[in-house]
Nucleic acid binder design. Structure first.
Lengths: 215, 215
DNA sequence: ATTTGTGAACGCATTCACAGCT
DNA sequence: AGCTGTGAATGCGTTCACAAAT
């Protein structure tokens, strides 16, 4: 089984996994690239090509076994093992992410949040995740075998947060801070830039307004 | 000035705008594609090509005027006018987004949150945005000229939320629910899928673990 | 008849390389 | 000399179209 695939493909794998879980919940035993594509708003060929990167999991003329494909994709995405996650920044966003249902499923476990603010340290999120002082980050990352971290601090604090995480041994980072911290080659960092997402829509509104005026 | 450009380009425009604002704060008057690219972790040609879609804003041999380019890009992104925004779903995530600093700058104004839960209705977020009942959505959208909405409800409630927003006259939607609601052709919808982002990193971890084993 | 798996075609986005200007 | 603007080249991802399988 080839394990490396284009970035775009692996992102869609998450969508397929969700659809397969939904189908399994509805006691659907078998499905097709057409069905999956429909639910993900994609082209069926795309679904087949994505899956083909990792092997042939379907049966020609028949389709895919829901449960089998679900397990295969979960395995490819590494969700069949425990993944300890730390969140740096226990503000509104960090706290919301800590209790986000999608982040506490499969093997993913949000172990703790870290913050510098004394009045946050020692508290817990609504669902009970503890807020610890940043000074304890390296120790907790080692003890609890944390490999992945979420950065939810202000832009000005992001580089330091990332540096601490890298020093502590984390190897993948999901960054919500509106900046692009530098990381060593071996670290994988992804950016969720909320402002960019919003402004891609304000652009659309401006474009449409201009078109309406011209009409 | 051509106004339509590839999606990827317009998303980068947001990054350029941020960099230019930072440069302006540091009283830097002039900059270059090389500098902007450096800060955004991109290729300088890309920056120039992106800007070229909308016209020639630089001076050969010199570079770009920071303040001028900032205003031009803000205009392209439609941030030079007021944009009323509604958030549907006043849970952890919706509340965090309502108070997110990046969402309350430029012309963007988060007008209100909407929820169905009686114990949330009538409250306010920490920064004072009111939580209203969903029944009042259509009225408030009309009165306050809301054009853009953020959906932060559970997957099961997303389609209904989107339908209400569309009926109320909203024309752009930023969807955080882990599903892909159907929308009419004329509506622009973007998805921020937090689980997909996280799983793109768990995939990386799995990939690396497999590589380490093979070594 | 239906659906997978896949080579080929297509289209889009990025990067290169350089002419044009200061 | 230095930087922009841009045509050409490259690379990547998506879609098409069909052979293979049931």
């Amino acid at each position: 089984m080839k394990r490396n695939a284009p970035e775009a493909t692996t992102r869609r794998l998450s969508l397929y996994l969700r659809v397969l879980s939904e189908l399994a919940d509805q006691n659907v035993a078998s499905t097709s690239s057409r069905m999956i594509a429909l639910r993900c708003d994609l082209n069926p060929s795309q679904v087949r090509k994505d899956l083909a990167h990792f092997g042939g999991f379907g049966v020609r003329g028949v389709g895919y076994d829901v449960e089998r494909l679900r397990q295969v994709i979960a395995g490819i995405l590494g969700l069949d093992r425990r993944i300890g996650v730390a969140i740096v920044g226990a503000g509104n966003l960090g706290s919301a992410l800590a209790d986000y249902p999608g982040f506490n499923s499969g093997g993913v476990e949000i172990v703790a949040l870290f913050d510098v603010s004394p009045d946050k340290i020692g508290t817990r999120t609504r669902l009970g995740r503890p807020v610890l002082e940043v000074a304890s980050l390296a120790r907790v990352v080692a003890e609890r075998e944390i490999q992945l971290a979420i950065v939810a601090v202000p832009a000005a604090a992001a580089q330091e947060a990332v540096d601490r995480l890298v020093a502590a041994g984390v190897s993948a980072i999901l960054n919500f801070a509106p900046t692009r911290p530098a990381v060593p080659e071996r670290i994988c960092i992804r950016h969720v830039d909320l402002k960019v997402e919003l402004e891609s829509l304000t652009y659309f509104l401006a474009l449409r307004e201009a078109a309406d005026q011209a009409r």
